[in-house]
Protein backbone atom coordinates (compact mmCIF):
# COMPACT_ATOMS: atom_id res chain seq x y z
CA UNK A 1 0.00 0.00 0.00
CA UNK A 2 1.35 3.37 -1.07
CA UNK A 3 0.75 6.48 1.01
CA UNK A 4 -1.29 8.07 -1.79
CA UNK A 5 -3.81 5.32 -1.05
CA UNK A 6 -3.58 5.91 2.70
CA UNK A 7 -4.30 9.56 2.02
CA UNK A 8 -7.63 8.70 0.35
CA UNK A 9 -8.78 5.90 2.63
CA UNK A 10 -11.21 6.48 5.44
CA UNK A 11 -12.77 4.07 7.90
CA UNK A 12 -16.24 3.34 6.60
CA UNK A 13 -17.73 1.43 9.51
CA UNK A 14 -21.35 2.49 9.93
CA UNK A 15 -21.67 5.36 12.39
CA UNK A 16 -18.01 6.37 12.39
CA UNK A 17 -17.71 10.17 12.02
CA UNK A 18 -13.95 10.71 11.99
CA UNK A 19 -12.52 7.75 10.11
CA UNK A 20 -9.67 9.75 8.54
CA UNK A 21 -6.76 9.31 8.61
CA UNK A 22 -6.03 5.74 9.57
CA UNK A 23 -3.19 5.26 12.04
CA UNK A 24 -0.56 2.88 10.73
CA UNK A 25 1.00 -0.14 12.35
CA UNK A 26 4.10 -0.83 10.28
CA UNK A 27 5.58 -4.34 10.48
CA UNK A 28 7.36 -4.36 7.13
CA UNK A 29 8.05 -1.36 4.90
CA UNK A 30 9.55 -1.42 1.42
CA UNK A 31 10.48 1.16 -1.15
CA UNK A 32 9.80 0.64 -4.85
CA UNK A 33 11.19 2.97 -7.47
CA UNK A 34 8.61 5.00 -9.36
CA UNK A 35 9.19 7.38 -12.28
CA UNK A 36 9.69 10.88 -10.98
CA UNK A 37 7.19 13.18 -12.67
CA UNK A 38 7.06 16.71 -11.18
CA UNK A 39 3.97 17.58 -13.22
CA UNK A 40 2.06 14.67 -11.74
CA UNK A 41 3.05 15.83 -8.24
CA UNK A 42 1.89 19.40 -8.94
CA UNK A 43 -1.41 18.12 -10.28
CA UNK A 44 -2.11 15.76 -7.41
CA UNK A 45 -0.91 18.14 -4.71
CA UNK A 46 -4.29 19.80 -4.23
CA UNK A 47 -5.85 16.44 -3.44
CA UNK A 48 -3.46 15.52 -0.69
CA UNK A 49 -4.23 16.07 2.99
CA UNK A 50 -0.75 17.15 3.96
CA UNK A 51 -0.80 16.48 7.72
CA UNK A 52 -2.04 12.96 7.11
CA UNK A 53 0.71 12.29 4.56
CA UNK A 54 3.44 13.71 6.78
CA UNK A 55 2.35 11.68 9.82
CA UNK A 56 1.86 8.50 7.79
CA UNK A 57 5.32 8.87 6.25
CA UNK A 58 6.81 9.38 9.70
CA UNK A 59 5.18 6.17 10.93
CA UNK A 60 6.89 4.35 8.04
CA UNK A 61 10.24 5.88 8.99
CA UNK A 62 10.26 8.67 6.39
CA UNK A 63 10.65 11.95 8.30
CA UNK A 64 11.94 14.46 5.74
CA UNK A 65 8.59 16.03 4.89
CA UNK A 66 8.16 19.66 6.04
CA UNK A 67 5.66 20.53 8.76
CA UNK A 68 3.70 22.88 6.52
CA UNK A 69 3.58 23.33 2.77
CA UNK A 70 2.66 25.96 0.22
CA UNK A 71 2.16 25.94 -3.53
CA UNK A 72 5.52 27.72 -4.09
CA UNK A 73 7.34 24.69 -2.77
CA UNK A 74 6.18 22.77 -5.84
CA UNK A 75 8.99 24.48 -7.77
CA UNK A 76 11.63 23.23 -5.33
CA UNK A 77 13.30 20.05 -6.53
CA UNK A 78 14.33 18.76 -3.10
CA UNK A 79 10.79 19.11 -1.84
CA UNK A 80 9.36 17.40 -4.92
CA UNK A 81 11.77 14.48 -4.51
CA UNK A 82 10.73 14.02 -0.88
CA UNK A 83 7.03 14.36 -1.74
CA UNK A 84 7.43 11.84 -4.60
CA UNK A 85 9.22 9.32 -2.41
CA UNK A 86 6.66 9.52 0.40
CA UNK A 87 3.62 9.49 -1.87
CA UNK A 88 4.52 6.82 -4.42
CA UNK A 89 7.62 4.85 -3.47
CA UNK A 90 7.35 3.93 0.20
CA UNK A 91 4.95 1.03 0.60
CA UNK A 92 3.55 -0.73 3.61
CA UNK A 93 3.98 -4.45 2.94
CA UNK A 94 2.83 -5.91 6.24
CA UNK A 95 1.00 -4.26 9.11
CA UNK A 96 -2.38 -2.74 9.78
CA UNK A 97 -4.54 0.34 9.38
CA UNK A 98 -6.20 1.41 12.62
CA UNK A 99 -9.43 3.39 12.69
CA UNK A 100 -8.76 6.63 14.64
CA UNK A 101 -12.23 6.56 16.19
CA UNK A 102 -12.95 2.92 17.05
CA UNK A 103 -9.46 1.37 17.06
CA UNK A 104 -10.64 -1.32 14.63
CA UNK A 105 -7.65 -2.86 12.84
CA UNK A 106 -7.65 -3.65 9.13
CA UNK A 107 -4.75 -5.89 8.21
CA UNK A 108 -2.30 -5.13 5.41
CA UNK A 109 -0.75 -8.23 3.91
CA UNK A 110 1.55 -8.55 0.89
CA UNK A 111 1.03 -4.82 0.35
CA UNK A 112 -2.76 -5.12 0.10
CA UNK A 113 -5.02 -3.63 2.78
CA UNK A 114 -8.13 -5.64 3.48
CA UNK A 115 -10.96 -3.21 4.21
CA UNK A 116 -13.84 -5.66 4.20
CA UNK A 117 -16.27 -5.03 7.01
CA UNK A 118 -18.02 -7.53 9.21
CA UNK A 119 -21.76 -7.85 8.84
CA UNK A 120 -22.45 -5.84 12.01
CA UNK A 121 -20.28 -2.96 10.79
CA UNK A 122 -22.24 -2.11 7.62
Amino acid sequence: MKLITHNMLSCHIKGVKNGFPFKIQADKVESRDADFDPQFLRNIFGRIEWDALRDAAASLGVDNLPQTVSAEMLEDDDFLQAFHHALLEVTLEEGALICPETGRKFSVSKGIPNLLLNEDET
Partner: peptide
Protein backbone atom coordinates in the same frame (compact mmCIF):
# COMPACT_ATOMS: atom_id res chain seq x y z
CA UNK B 1 3.58 3.10 -10.20
CA UNK B 2 0.57 5.39 -9.91
CA UNK B 3 -1.87 2.61 -9.01
CA UNK B 4 -2.61 0.65 -5.85
CA UNK B 5 -4.92 -2.15 -4.74
CA UNK B 6 -7.13 -2.87 -1.75
CA UNK B 7 -9.62 -5.58 -0.88
CA UNK B 8 -12.92 -3.80 -0.37
Amino acid sequence: TRADVAVA
